[in-house]
Design a binder for these strands. Structure first.
Length: 530
RNA sequence: GGGGGUGUAGCUCAGGGGUAGAGCUCCUGCCUUUUAAGCAGGCUGUCGAAGGUUCAAAUCCUUCCACCCUCACCA
């Protein structure tokens, strides 16, 4: 078919004059040729709108009645399969709700219409009008009396049976993944549903949804490396937020008593199955409450979200069944270590704790204070064992610079984290509101920064100023939305709950599709075809 | 960053020093209730990239790139 008389130009890759010789080009060209041919025949393959009477689920719900009444209906969707038998054809059309078979017969659409239907490729988006009937094999079907092409697809669809399996392509071209893998679509609908349920819960509990800066002059509220950027007019460094905590607390100072934010946060750290550089957190702050109150509310929220999605409190996650029926287990960090190892770290000095940790086989570079040592022991010995929802409470003072000192326990803070299936699902404090204490914590963090802890938090002068105006006693909570969704949709990798996960740049080995298209169009205009 | 694995047609995958393979897609023909429609015929490849070994490399070696799993650190 293709004339190979002219040798491909073996110039450098990326050279625009290089002749692309791959099958994909022929597939695209075949489709493109249909467009030019039909366009010159006066048919617009990219029209502006189509008047639908129903989406497919609506047709299926009222199928018998509408079939009996021979109601004329109009639907639109993508052609997923085609079965041609001479002068009649079947096709499967999928819209945003469901799939339906259509039946296109020469007698019903005329020669011109049937010829047009012949040009349709898998992936094209069409609109059709007709009546409903059931085939003799029992399949509910639309008998088409007229149709039009609403969008011509130039790129072929993945395999109609096997679908799109390659994980890398699924992430890089999520649109293709969504077209051919309906279960992926379902998972992302679940994501939206989960977030909506949380939003409803917070609204119903009189929490005010607010928005605070993503571009921050100073980062804080978490332990992480930030993304840095530069504002030209202001000529100053700005950071993408790693958390919104310090801004929400300023609102507590300002008199809002229950606030929350759905926040996109950014952390300049590794990418793996649990981490994406941008991710979603929900943070909420509740005046006149403490961390115990927050734990009770968090339980109720999760309970409601789980039930809303699954209709039960016990859900599968990999090899486990997770039971979300409150109350969740509550245990202090130090007690949990003692339960697991028999070693009691309470009251230990830095030196004693280091020695005890060493005996347990826990050592490391970053263990620069007592709190870090205890945390490291806990992470090694306890965290992996936490399958059922468990609150770990009362973290060491040194690793909790924004939490209030524990009202009874020396060296600890009023802080909990929730763990489910070994994943951290939330972090909450009785929020530190004594400006002097907070100032001292910041100064201590400054020392940690100097000591090589590059995740220690910088001093935020305006935040201290705000606390000097007075923040009421407050409980605060932040939790990772993506991880919660992972648990609730039984996904092992954060990329499966992010529509467009961060990927490295593709550098070699593939021809840009747009370049193929540009070359085809170029050949059309120069008449250099066939 | 360490260890293990993968990369072959648009998609799903075989092959494994000597002519590049299959199914689906696509193209042509037949077929007016099929359904992964069927039947007959046909087109299609920088075998991830760059080097090396060899008479000969998709295959063996080295380096690099991307992706997956895993370990260490962070949500």
């Amino acid at each position: 078919m293709t004339d190979k008389a002219s040798q491909p130009d073996h110039s450098k890759p990326g050279d625009a004059t290089e002749q692309i010789q791959i099958p994909l080009k022929e597939l695209i060209k075949t489709r493109r040729d249909k467009v030019t041919k039909l366009t010159s025949a006066g048919i617009n393959l990219y029209p502006y709108r189509y008047e639908r009477t129903h989406v497919i689920t609506e047709l299926l719900e009222n199928f018998d009645t509408m079939a009996n009444d021979e109601t004329v209906v109009r639907l639109a969707g993508r052609v997923m399969l085609r079965r041609k038998m001479g002068k009649a054809s079947f096709a499967d059309v999928r819209d945003g709700s469901e799939r339906l078979q259509i039946y296109v017969k020469l007698n019903n659409v005329g020669q011109e219409g049937y010829d047009l239907f012949d040009t349709i490729d898998l992936g094209d988006i069409i609109g059709c009008e007709g009546t409903l009937f059931v085939t003799r094999t029992g399949e509910r079907t639309l008998k088409v009396t007229s149709f039009e092409i609403l969008t011509k697809a130039l790129h072929p669809l993945p395999d109609k049976h096997a679908g799109l399996v390659d994980i890398e392509t699924r992430y890089r071209r999520r649109y293709a993944d969504l077209i051919v893998n309906p279960e992926v679509r379902e998972d992302f609908i679940k994501r939206t549903k989960i977030i909506r349920t949380i939003r409803d819960f917070l609204n119903n509990n009189d929490f005010l949804e607010v928005e605070t800066p993503i571009l921050q002059p100073l980062y804080g509220g978490g332990m992480a490396l930030p993304f840095k950027t530069h504002h030209h007019r202001l000529d100053r460094e700005l950071y993408l937020r790693i958390a919104d905590e310090l801004y929400l607390k300023r609102l507590l100072v300002g008199g809002f008593e229950k606030v929350w934010e759905f926040c996109k946060d950014f952390r300049n750290e590794g990418i793996d199955r649990l981490h994406n550089p941008e991710f979603s957190m929900i943070e909420l702050y509740w005046a006149y409450a403490d961390y115990r109150d927050m734990a009770a509310m968090f339980e109720q929220m999760l309970r409601q979200v789980v039930f809303e999605l699954h209709g039960t409190y016990r859900i599968p996650y990999h090899d486990h069944e997770i039971d979300f029926e409150p109350p969740f287990k509550w245990i202090s960090m130090i007690d949990s270590i003692r339960e697991e190892t028999g070693v009691d770290f309470s009251g230990m000095s830095f030196e004693q704790a280091t020695a005890a940790a060493k005996k347990l086989g826990v050592t490391g570079d970053g263990l620069i204070n007592r709190g870090k040592v205890i945390e490291a022991v806990w992470e090694a010995k306890v965290e992996p064992t936490l399958i059922q929802p468990t609150f770990i409470a009362d973290f060491p003072f040194e690793i909790s610079p924004l939490a209030k000192k524990h009202r009874e326990k020396e060296g600890l803070t009023e802080r909990f984290e929730l763990f489910i299936a070994g994943l951290e699902m939330g972090n909450a404090f009785s929020e530190l509101n004594d400006p002097v204490d907070q100032l001292q914590r910041f100064l201590q963090q400054g020392k940690a920064l100097e000591a090589g802890d590059d995740e220690a938090q910088p001093l935020d002068d305006d935040f201290i100023t705000a606390l000097m105006y007075g923040m009421p006693p407050t409980a605060g909570l932040g939790f990772g939305v993506d991880r919660l969704i992972m648990i609730l949709t039984n996904k092992h990798n954060i990329r499966d709950v992010l529509l467009f996960p961060q990927m490295k740049e593709m550098k070699e080995g593939s021809v840009p599709v747009s370049k193929i298209l540009a070359q085809i169009v170029d050949e059309e205009s120069t008449g250099d075809t066939e």
